[in-house]
Nucleic acid binder design. Structure first.
Lengths: 241, 241
DNA sequence: GTGGCAACATTGTCCGACAGTCCGATTATC
DNA sequence: GATAATCGGACTGTCGGACAATGTTGCCAC
């Protein structure tokens, strides 16, 4: 059944080099913060041209494994940050034409759990970030763009407060997908804003008081509202002006 | 409070070009499958050197937005495939030193939901893939490496059968993280294999019969087992030889 | 039309070069 | 002595050109 021979894919030099360096990083033989040798030096070490090295470096850079601190010239080993990674994921999802329902189901799976853990594990600073995002939504509720950003920030803050990096990183791409849908919804469904304010308030309060069950159920309600809002918005007959 | 001037970050040409092309792709102005102009041609169009174009292309290629079909020379626009994207995510998570608990919590949030939807939405082909992975685990249960792969494939198949790309893509990175932990566990906890066989059987049966609640609860039990297995394995006193 | 072949196009890699800028050390200034 | 101006070296971003290997394509014979 299985083929006798696997197709061999030739790896161009730049890819091989990128892989070698990547393995070094993952194996912690190159550690976060370490500065990479100069391109010229790398070219010498690998015995290839600098152009080839540069192409290899580009790969690692876009993966977020290499980066440079502002205004610095030398590259250093970096840990890929959630927002960077997640932007790739959400772009991929966008290109796969995910439906709102798919997005919603995923949010429904992740966000309430994140809220639940946030209630038991949040640090004061995380709580503050979350409360502040809620306050910002309330304050800028009239400015759609700012409001949407505040909603996203609220979700991000809850996920961060969950103390679970995996949940946080799983959740991050959802935000980017949510933004456009939310923008339309918030514009066309009049009651949406008030409901968001209420839900955020309840969730924040529950997390503050460390009531994990309440945090979870309120987050569930909150997310359910999104679905209702989306249905209202996409039903032309019922949608507000 | 707010600074008067924001730090301006200069974008090198290769990044600008990458962004321009990326926007074209996301906006569907360049559609999946379309062939990209040759590097020389792109260099002419953008008015830069070919080396610069190549660096830009490398970025898009590693994002999975460009690729070439086997043995072909010209690049074409590609949709980023889940495994490609998720490998980036799991590498990121690995570098952030996620704990088994974090991974487990995320699995607990996602996998049961995926199983639940799979029960209602799976196609015959998806069901077959899932059943086959379970059978493979049973068959190769003695070969640790093969068994671990079968477990991962089973999860992947369930997620695919959920008919939700967002869940599937959120779940994919978890697999890669699970593999090493599972390898240790399966080796050291004697009863693990039998329990996995049982759980996979129950889950597959529930999905086959479209019993979504059963699928969900059995998946929950299955995942809970992992936690127990991990605790046994990491408790030196109790671990099997 | 199909098979085969030759000319062409394209990619991967190399070499050499240069401007702009960051860094570190040295010198000038208070 | 501490701080500020200066200078040379190192490094990155970009450029131009070059060549081998390998797809691609059009043409010709059958």
């Amino acid at each position: 059944m299985a083929d006798l021979f696997a197709p061999l894919d030739d790896h161009p030099a730049y890819r091989q080099i990128a892989n070698v360096i990547e393995r070094r990083i993952v194996a912690r033989s190159l550690r976060t913060g370490d500065a990479l040798p100069s391109e010229t030096d790398l070219a010498r070490q690998f015995g290839v041209n600098r152009s080839t090295i540069r192409e290899a470096i580009r790969e690692l850079e876009t993966h977020g494994l290499l980066g440079r601190v502002r205004g610095e010239k030398r590259l250093r080993v970096t840990r890929p940050e959630p927002d960077q990674v997640s932007s790739g994921v959400s772009r991929a999802l966008a290109l796969h034409d995910v439906t709102f329902l798919e997005l919603w189901e995923a949010m429904m799976a992740i966000e309430p759990v994140a809220a639940q853990y946030a209630a038991t594990r949040r640090t004061p600073a995380q709580l503050q970030a979350l409360v502040r995002a809620a306050a910002r939504f309330k304050r800028e509720v009239a400015d759609t763009a700012a409001a949407v950003i505040a909603v996203v920030d609220f979700f991000t803050a809850v996920a961060a407060a969950s103390g679970n990096q995996v949940l946080a990183l799983s959740q991050a791409p959802l935000n980017l997908l949510l933004a456009p849908a939310l923008t339309r919804m918030i514009d066309r469904v009049p009651q949406a804003r008030a409901r968001i304010v209420e839900a955020q308030g309840k969730i924040a309060a529950a997390i503050k008081l460390r009531r994990s069950e309440q945090a979870r159920t309120w987050m569930e309600k909150h997310i359910r509202d999104f679905k209702r809002g989306h249905e209202l918005e996409s039903m032309p007959s019922k949608a507000g002006k």
